[in-house]
Computed example of a mutant assay.
Amino acid sequence: MRTEPNLVYSAPARVLHWLTAGLLLIQFVLAWTMPDVHRDTKPVGLIAWHLGVGMAILLLVLVRCLWRSTHAVPPEPVTLPLALRALARYTHRALYALLIAVPLIGWANASSRGWPISLFASIPMPPLSPTGSPTGHALGDWHRNFAWVLLALVAMHVSAALFHHFILRDRTLIRMLPSSDKR
């Protein structure tokens, strides 16, 4: 089965999508397996990895936003009810917002702990809150809560893609798969 090339996402858009998905999967695994963060916790081991992957996600999503702002989204191959189209649009917007907000809030929380933040373990980033900031410390709870909301939206996004593929039997999922222009 071949999908019309003008209906698939561009190769860069697909790569950015799947890189984000892969980093997000790694990030959630790190979050579940790293030790709890307390007052005396040091940013080493899995926590250091969590901070680094969070910065990579933030950079990647900002690149995705730039790409998306300069490249049109391919037209939908199917006609969906207005309510489903609106739900998809708002879910995507919420995903982008949380993919930016969660790392930023985590960065501010880490800054309030005096933890150094770097991009790719080599480029130092400025603190987003002063060391000892009560607001920065409180953002740790927001970081965790928003991460749960992000996880729920990701689950909804994946479920919707599978619903399109297996129930509606349309090309929505195929448009984002690698080499989908050859299918």
Rank of each mutant, 00 (worst) to 15 (best):
S111Y: 01
T3L: 14
M55D: 06
A83V: 10
L23K: 00
V73D: 12
T135Y: 09
R89A: 13
L84T: 09
A101H: 08
P12C: 00
L58H: 02
G52R: 02
S179V: 13
V37I: 15
S122F: 12
A121C: 11
L150G: 04
P43A: 12
A56D: 08
L84Q: 14
P124Q: 04
I57H: 05
L58W: 06
R14M: 10
H165F: 07
V78E: 14
E4P: 07
G106L: 05
G106N: 01
R85W: 03
Q27N: 11
M34P: 04
M125T: 06
A110R: 05
R144I: 13
F120D: 04
T20S: 13
E4M: 09
L25N: 05
H38I: 08
R85Y: 00
L24S: 14
I26Y: 07
L128C: 08
P35R: 00
L59V: 15
T135H: 07
S118G: 11
K182N: 05
L153C: 08
P127I: 01
L151C: 03
H38M: 08
L119G: 04
P127H: 11
A31K: 02
T172A: 15
H157I: 02
N109G: 12
G136N: 04
R113W: 11
V15W: 15
L139N: 05
L30Q: 04
